[in-house]
Design a protein around this nucleic acid. Structure first.
Lengths: 241, 241
DNA sequence: CGAGGCGTTGAGTATGATCAAGGGGAGTGG
DNA sequence: CCACTCCCCTTGATCATACTCAACGCCTCG
């Protein structure tokens, strides 16, 4: 599945790319040095503060991005304000909907986040020139599809308790993939965001967190820091087989 | 978006492909005559009765398919039997999860369905040889991702009434894409399936259908045939902006 | 100190689930 | 032809889960 990276030790590599994490797991890994040089000329690193929007629902999108650090939430909103988070993206995910200029969802930083943004036009051209790049993007789309479908089961069929446990389990296993110890982590989402992700209200999320605390399935410090003594047990509470 | 089809009038075209609908909208449209000839040697048309399974959750999958006619439901099941339909596929969709042999969901015919099945190995090879083919599969994956995310909003944030209306709206606009008149159609799913798609119970689906009938938003004949006098109105009831 | 944001907790309520009964059509067998 | 069963769907009564509304605690910031 992982394609061989090209010339990664070549000293002609753009400076900004040399220390870039995304080049390994992310989409840039398939590009040639020449392509990286060209892309880096037009790419901009941006820091996005927690809570600020990268792309709004219905906006035209002029760029794609790699997430360097942080967490992006993708959400949909109804006319009356009801909101549903439909995906979370972590470094080094690629962010953007290839081949469609108009965004059907909004992207917002959940915590302070850093991205590397490229103009659509350049990426679209490189995709058509570099089958390996399209292959990577295809794989990322399939991964997101698998995740979306997993979450549909959670949204449609799980209880509030299972939903909250599922969320904690998801974060435990995704926030810091490098980190082997999944037993402690900071929640990247507020209670309101968690509610929007789980199709619940803030109050229900809070109550279920309290319940999980009282059952010693989790310990919580400062509202955001969570310790999971037994990940297996959390998984069972989440309804994982 | 639509790539040019190659040599479709060439008389060397395999007989089975000549009258095939999927060659136009489906993935075969990007293949050369030679590729079609090779593929057709190993492809088999299968008829699948309503209710029978094509692929089981957790099974190894040896083939991909084009849906020629009918409707396939993709679903996930929890250990205790709770079930969620995570996608519906209509002709001429491509069915299968590229690059992964093990299925994380089960595929079952909702109504009598006809598919054209190909061995994984051949498709996987053609994908690597034919960038256009990967491009089409990529686009299909992105389409399914968009649909899944739309549905997440429905599952997480809509009321029972809105969910049922959303389902009817979805079917009205998808069952027969050729057909211009969306105002009458047959439901491809039983009440139990609809419930599994909407994250509701059979009883709630039934009650909401009755309510929509009493409000004259739909008319129903023989439980399966639905007439929608005003699609806009149905859309508004579904919570579409 | 007060204001505002975020989270928790409590009381009452409503939406959809559960449990239960029955209608109607298709298929089968006498 | 009717009687019978089975399946699917509908309807009714009751119940429980999660929502709504409200109050309050804690922390940060001015």
């Amino acid at each position: 599945m992982d394609l061989p990276r090209k010339d990664i030790h070549n000293s002609n590599l753009p400076v900004v790319c040399r220390s870039c994490e995304a080049r390994h797991g992310g989409v840039c890994g398939t590009l040639t040095v020449d392509q990286l040089v060209e892309l880096s000329k037009h790419s901009t690193r941006r820091r996005i503060e927690a809570g600020s929007e990268v792309v709004g629902q219905g906006e035209r999108v002029g760029s794609y991005s790699n997430i360097m650090r942080g967490v992006i939430k993708l959400s949909k909103m109804m006319a009356d304000g009801r909101q549903q988070i439909v995906g979370l993206q972590f470094a080094p995910d690629f962010m953007g909907r290839p081949f469609v200029a108009e965004s059907t969802l909004s992207a917002e930083a959940a915590i302070d986040t850093e991205i590397c943004a490229f103009p659509r036009a350049i990426i679209d051209r490189m995709v058509s020139e570099t089958p390996e790049l399209e292959h990577r993007l295809h794989n990322q789309a399939l991964k997101e599809l698998d995740e979306a479908r997993d979450w549909m089961l959670t949204l449609g069929r799980k209880t509030a308790q299972e939903k909250v446990a599922s969320f904690l389990y998801l974060i435990a296993t995704n926030v810091d993939p490098e980190c082997i110890d999944k037993s402690a982590f900071d929640l990247p989402l507020s209670r309101a965001d968690i509610a929007d992700f789980l199709g619940l209200t803030i109050e229900t999320v809070s109550r279920q967190m309290t319940k999980l605390r009282k059952e010693n399935i989790i310990h919580v410090e400062n509202n955001r820091h969570v310790i999971v003594p037994d990940l297996e047990r959390l998984g069972r509470t989440a309804g994982n087989d």
